[in-house]
Amino acid sequence: MLEIIFVSTLNGVLYGMLLFLMASGLTVIFSMMGVLNLAHASFYMLGAFFGFEISRRLGFWPALVLAPVVVGLIGMAVERYGLRRVHRHGHVAELLFTFGLTFVIKEVVEMIWGKLPVDYRVPSGLDFAAFTLFSGNYPAFKLFGLLISVGIFIGLLMAVRHTRVGLIVQAALSHPGMVGMLGHNVDRIFMLVFGVGVGLAAVAGVIAGPILVTQSNMAGLLGPILFVVVVVGGLGSLGGALAASLLIGLVQTFAVAFNVSLADLFGGTAAGAILSVWLADIWRVTVAQIAPILPYLLLVMILIFRPRGLMGTRDT
């Protein structure tokens, strides 16, 4: 039992931090621009593919720096020539614009890299088991990912709270007109924020690419869970996103560890006999079986009972 708890906690934290790495950029963009970027997972995918392409030419470490920069520049161009234009049509138009972007990015990625998975590997310098616990190995590369996401969390928190840029950005969100009068270029600030946000997605892509499968459908598969993270955490709250990531990571891993079903709970009782007929389909479904669906259940529950999310400051 102790083993299960320990291993599940460790796996949950590792997975949760990977989720946070992917979702942090999304939170940054939302908190500062009020835009939920539905194409965020697509930029994450671009990061993975650029990471793959650069690391096979220049090595992993240059890729870790260059790929986010490239993706950030693409993101800035998207903001400058696309998002800014639809901004005046309101939030629904912004959502729809980023929604349309997902189709285009996917098709472009398929045109360049094809539809089959690419062979994106863990860099040889980090390709070893960091430690072994209850006969399971924990790869160094995953721990490296963990470090990066902790670093990003602290860095972002510092940048927003304690730097001049962070102050201007926060002010520009609530009073763009006033900030503009004070001589700051609000449009440029928004463009930078969007660039940084999708750049963070690209960092996640470069790191998650070798752990997961780098393929043109990766954005579509990951997208929904990222929105769960930012909404459950409270839209725009960095601390909330971290908490939600960890919560989802832990819920999912612990759920997998337990094989409890309705049959185990009510089996043998009189009511159980009736239930087993009526609920034949879900009678033997275990908690483990539905683990990956739990985050969506959590999302719906949170939005019913605590609409602002775990740590959100405003109702969405």
Partner: peptide, 21 residues
């Protein structure tokens, strides 16, 4: 005997831990 939802899982380590155990 483990069933998991179709193409919904990004991290299989909990499953692997379970198999290991």
């Amino acid at each position: 005997e483990e069933y998991h939802p179709l193409v919904k899982i990004t991290d299989f380590s909990p499953y692997v831990a379970k198999i290991q155990a």
